[in-house]
Write a protein that binds this DNA or RNA. Structure first.
Lengths: 228, 228, 228, 228
DNA sequence: ACTGTCGGGACCGCCCGTTCCT
DNA sequence: AGGAACGGGCGGTCCCGACAGT
């Protein structure tokens, strides 16, 4: 048993290292050798846990969509905002998350594994539909369309935030994006009460479980699984 | 002359082929051999025009930022919208444009060449600043911030439009993005008169020059060069 | 005891699996992993019984030369014929036998273990010498030379029988070989009485012991050991 | 042109080196690196001429079946004998020939490329049929069956000659095989006049063309092509 | 001036036989 | 006997020059 535990830790060490390498170089330019160095394991160890580079990428992609940390709130829209903000906080800090996004953008990886976008969109749409049912959305808003567009916008903002390298926190940029979008999504009564401040995000983060030894995402991730 | 002309055509054939290959595979996974096949030229020919794979990528990146086709309009914001819409129309149809975006997203290529985002952002900011001077923007709008965010959002929407593969025209998605953003950017008086319809885009396209044999962007592109 | 018995059975299961794998792929292309799968054992089990791949091959080679099933007969030449025919019957049916031949032909395996040909030849020569003493051989026949040549011919016929894949029974081909050779080996009086028919072979086979659980050749094989 | 000539020489250098490596180690154990060393070329050169190890093996196999050097003779059976004897002389001296045989015996190579045995058999059968038409064969001889058996026997004798390593010349062993077989194949009148002596073989060899720079088999080998 | 053949060298993913510790 | 890890090395393939020809 103890044996198994160490194996799992090793597996996660490898996964995390692979994620950072995918992140820095993209799928094809990422080399197994670099992953080996960062994970501090031998080729054999890696090959035992993952049969190929593709397998490695799949391992990363499998842990990427989550609503973890979002707490119930009277306004569904606030939950929706929280989801985006929380992810904005976590993604730069958790290699597996950013790697998943990177691989979704990489054409070669896309050919091989598809993307997680349908899942992300679905998750957004679910929340927006619920918000609509609660009368929180402006009448002309189509949850499906808005879900698609917002996921896209979120992704692009992240890419630029990282790519242009001004050192701004992603949370700030995503908050700006939200502030730009919300007036045309939420009904005025709700809009005034929505909180997109980094402070709120910071508070939410504290409710996240301590990162276990071996990194987050260890759990059999309840991926798209709605929390309602 | 005749000699030179053919050389230029060959050069552009190669560039276009390279662009499609970068597009499909990403920078690292793209192979020169594949480019050779698509451009129907030999190794020697390619290496005569481009000294290396990097050179090829640079050639693509150098033709990517343009306001071509945007016509003067009483409302600067309309010009701003037109720029986005026109690009949404052209990008899926011109390999060199989409390749430029793809390479900007590719981490390996980014390490080598940087990105064109600062240029794109700069171009947006210039227009927004002008719009602000004309009193077309809501008072709280910061052109620099909005420029950044919008370029990001635009990029992300494009990526998803292509990646999720629902077959929707990018023009439609970008129009939806604009409709979502504009109410919180433009003053009401202007907002009502802005036209984000695909029809307008279609009309603008007709003013673009016929694609010369050898493709668009052949000219020593006056890249970021504002048209005012 | 029961413990030991199971161990022996496991060992033989592994040996048989290894033999089929060597047969199908040759020494070098044969992988331990494939052997593991076919024998349905774990790595640990295999390495408990055999210290290395070489050991495995040695295990196979050690069970390959036998006169088992050949019964005493007034004409020694008939015994000689019977030996060839019996082996022709058994070899395609017993992986360990065919693997031994395969490994003798494989250059890599040959470098490591040598071959069993000297043993096979020795066995033939012994019989031929005895036949000569009985006056059954034509005067010009040199037992040593004929032994060599016949073992070679036998081997080659087997290889082709298997390689060309016409589905002919090896017994048929070896019988044809014998019919071709014997007129220039046996004195006419004996020649007429020698029986190379598959029927005789079939009858001899019935005298072979039931295949014990764990396969034939389990016994500490009395290899080259002559039966006279 | 001169350019091309060097390329051809390089190609043959590689082929010969590959043949010796296949010979010594078998298909799978043979490494490209070893071939590189022996041929004194770089990986790039090899990759230019042969796309893969398989391609290399195919290149070897393509030059293996020939009646070159066999001269017309009143007795077809003498030609048949000559063919075997000549091959017995050449095979140990020409790596490509022995490699072809080796690869035909190697199970892995067999899966990939099949064997040249059908060709060798066909060639023998053709000669035997002609001999039968000339009344040189004993009435009970079936050319097809004898062809098969003899090719097998020839192969096996070669393998043992090489494997047991007594240093005997293959010509001697093949002559012994022929002497053993012929009395049951040829009609007595012919039998007495057939010459299986090494001296005859030596004489035939002198009629073979000088080995061109680049080795034998350079010519577009007229493989199975009968010479009648 | 431009094209094509041929060769150079680097490196990557894969996979394998083997051992160590329960 | 089993699960995990070790480390070496192979085949493939790629990007790129160096010339010779036209």
């Amino acid at each position: 048993m103890a044996r198994q535990e160490r194996a799992i830790r090793t597996r996660n060490e490898i996964l995390k290292a692979a994620a950072t390498v995918f992140n820095e170089f993209g799928y094809d330019a990422a080399t197994i050798a670099e992953t080996l160095i960062r994970a501090q394991v031998t080729r054999g160890a890696l090959y035992f846990h993952f049969r190929s580079k593709e397998d490695l990428a799949r391992g990363v992609l499998d842990q990427a969509v989550t609503l973890e940390g979002v707490e119930p709130h009277p306004f569904v829209l606030q939950e929706w905002v929280d989801a985006s903000m929380l992810l904005a906080y976590r993604l730069p800090r958790e290699p597996v998350l950013s790697a998943a996004l990177r691989l979704s953008v990489d054409p070669k990886a896309r050919q091989l594994f598809g993307t997680r976008w349908p899942d992300w969109i679905e998750l957004n749409v679910q929340l927006l539909v619920a918000a609509k049912d609660h009368g929180e959305l402006l009448p002309h808003v189509d949850p499906i369309e808005v879900g698609r567009i917002v996921v896209g916008a979120w992704t692009g903002v992240e890419l630029i935030n990282e790519g242009v390298g001004t050192g701004r926190d992603l949370v700030t940029d995503i908050a700006a994006l939200m502030d730009l979008l919300l007036p045309n999504i939420a009904v005025p009564g709700i809009l005034a009460k929505l909180d997109t401040s980094p402070e709120r995000t910071a508070k939410l983060v504290t409710t996240l479980p301590e990162e276990p030894p071996g990194g987050p995402g260890l759990s059999d991730s309840p991926l798209v699984e709605s929390h309602r």
